[in-house]
Design a protein around this nucleic acid. Structure first.
Length: 285
DNA sequence: ATGGTTGCGTAGCAA
C-alpha cells in the first residue's frame, strides 16, 4: 500500500499537476495539505474520476487538508483532537481497510489509520504564531501517544513545518532565526520520535539531500537550496511492514509547481494479514 | 538584502 503526502499550495491551482502525478505515481492513499479551499469548491469529480474516495477538511483562503483513498474510509476525525475552538483546518484522520477477507482464505487485512496534517509555520519566532505552533505540536504529541497505545498501524503524514536536523537543509545556517529550525521545534519533532514513531525517510537513508521543499524565491530549486519539512511518521507496527520510501522531487520542475513535492512510503500489507480469530481467549501484546 | 515568489482573491496576508 503506497501512502503519499503532498503540500500542494492550493488544490485548485494544482489540480492538473495532481491528476498527472497520481496517474504517474499510482498511490493508494494521498494526504493533501494547503488545499486553500472550502469543501464544496474542492475539485472532487477530478479525483473521483481517477478512482479515489475523498474526505475533506478545508476552509476559505488558508490551510485545509484532505485524504484521497482507493479504498473507502471510515471513522473520520476532523481537526486535531484536544484543541478547543480551533479555527484552522490542519488535521484530518481516517481508517482504511475494512477487515476485508482475502479471497478463499480466512485471512483478513488489519485496519490502518492515516492522518494528513499541516502543522503551523510559526514565524516569526517569539510571536503568537510561534506559541501556537508549539502548542499545536503538544496537542499532536498527546494525540499521537494515545494512538500508539492501541498498537494498531498508524501513519502520520504531512507538512510538519520542522527541519529535524542540520542534515535536512542545504544551508542550515540560513534557517537559524526561523521557526522551522528553532530548538523548540526540533525538540517537538524529537518527542514524536521518542514515542516510538519511525521517520520513514530516515529508515532508508542518511542522505543530506532528501529535501521536500524549495522556496519559490531566490531560485532555490535551481540552486537545490532545499529543506526536508514534509514527513511520514510510522507507528511501530506500520514501520515493521515498510517496503520502500520515495521523494518525487522532479515534480518541482513541472510547470506551475507547488513549493513542496510528494513524498511516499510503501507498506507491505500482505504481511499484515491476520487470521480471523474465533478463539474465546485472545492475547494481545 | 528592511529582498526574493506564489495563491487567494482582488488588498494584503501567509508562507
Amino acid at each position: 500500500m503506497k501512502i503519499a503526502t503532498w503540500n500542494v499550495n492550493g488544490v485548485r491551482a494544482r489540480i492538473e499537476a495532481i491528476v498527472a502525478w497520481i496517474k504517474a505515481s499510482n498511490p493508494d492513499i494521498v494526504c493533501l495539505q494547503e488545499t486553500k479551499v472550502i469543501d464544496k469548491e474542492f475539485p472532487l469529480s477530478q479525483v473521483e474520476d481517477l478512482g479515489y474516495h475523498a474526505v475533506l477538511y478545508g476552509q476559505k483562503m488558508f490551510h485545509g487538508v484532505a485524504i484521497l483513498s482507493k479504498l473507502p474510509m471510515q471513522n473520520i476525525t476532523y481537526g486535531l483532537p484536544g484543541i478547543q475552538d480551533d479555527n484552522q483546518a490542519r488535521y484530518i484522520e481516517a481508517v482504511i481497510s475494512p477487515h476485508q477477507q482475502i479471497e478463499s482464505t480466512n485471512m483478513y487485512n488489519r485496519p490502518i489509520c492515516i492522518a494528513s496534517l499541516y502543522a503551523p509555520n510559526g514565524n516569526p519566532i517569539g510571536s503568537e504564531k510561534f506559541l501556537y505552533k508549539l502548542s499545536w505540536m503538544q496537542h499532536l504529541e498527546k494525540h499521537a501517544k494515545s494512538k500508539l497505545a492501541s498498537g494498531g498501524m498508524f501513519v502520520m503524514a504531512g507538512d510538519y513545518n520542522i527541519i529535524p536536523s542540520h542534515r535536512d537543509a542545504q544551508n542550515p545556517a540560513s534557517w537559524e532565526q526561523d521557526a522551522l529550525y528553532h530548538k523548540s521545534s526540533k525538540a517537538a519533532f524529537r518527542r514524536l520520535i521518542y514515542l516510538g514513531f519511525v521517520d520513514a525517510i530516515r529508515a532508508v537513508t542518511d542522505s543530506d539531500q532528501a529535501f521536500t521543499f524549495w522556496n519559490y524565491k531566490s531560485d532555490s530549486w535551481r540552486k537545490n537550496n532545499g529543506i526536508r519539512i514534509d514527513h511520514i511518521l510510522l507507528s511501530p507496527s506500520a514501520a515493521d511492514n515498510l517496503n520502500f520510501v520515495g521523494i518525487e522531487d522532479l515534480v518541482r520542475s513541472w510547470n506551475k509547481p507547488s513549493d513542496h513535492v510528494p513524498l511516499w512510503a510503501d507498506l507491505n500489507l500482505a504481511s499484515c494479514l491476520v487470521p480471523h480469530i474465533n478463539h474465546r481467549y485472545c492475547l494481545s501484546r
